[in-house]
Amino acid sequence: MEKFKKIVGIAAPFTRINVDTDLIIPAESLKTISRKGLGKDLFSYIRFNENGSQNNKFILNQPNYKNSKILVTGKNFGCGSSREHAVWALKDFGIKCLIGTEFADIFYNNCFKNGVLAIILDSKKVEKIIKIVSSSKNSELEIDLESQTVKTKQNEIINFDILPYLKRNLLEGVDDISKTLEKKKLIDEYEFDMKKKYPWLEKKNG
């Protein structure tokens, strides 16, 4: 998995609440067998008008935010469907980090499996960041995972918490599957015990 250490980039404030993964990437864009190339369809229902032209009101279409690397989100971002395509689309578009008060559980997990850092802060801090990055001259932020800090253009520092294993995984770009396969013996033992304890769980074709 791709590592995440430090990024400097434009942060776009997208304050809409309950943004669901259907809005991030609609179902019609899921007919793919690849993880790549989904950025073009990111937020497609609200990013583009019906005739296919850009919706200039949408934040990521505004000149200052076109190349955003960070999205500052409203409450409960990523709710709904488990589609990892939502994270693939954000990443393919160039978004490497999300900041919000709350993310839906599956979406949050999916971010970390793809080297995307989702930062949870209290609402006061998020509101403050939204206020700062809403001004185009101050919309750049520096995110440093090692020190767990968000730094504004005015060198103001905001600290964030993160679970130690998520931090370590991102910093090292850990491949979860390889790590788990190192525990093969434990899994073997569990299965051996289980067969004795719960014999009905062994598949028996009806």
């Binding site: 993880r35 709904g80 469907s81 488990s82 589609r83 990892e84 395509h85 994270v87 599956i106 997990n109 999916n110 499996k113 793809n114 979860d176 599957i177 788990t180 396969l181 899994i187």
Partner: peptide
């Protein structure tokens, strides 16, 4: 790999949706 896996909880099973990376993890391990 579907959020409505929660359906199966009706039987007293712990059932939940996962992303595709996790699907791969479960397939392999």
């Amino acid at each position: 790999g579907d959020s409505h896996t929660s359906t199966h909880g009706a039987f007293g099973a712990l059932a939940f949706g996962i992303g595709t990376s996790e699907v791969e993890h479960v397939l392999a391990t």
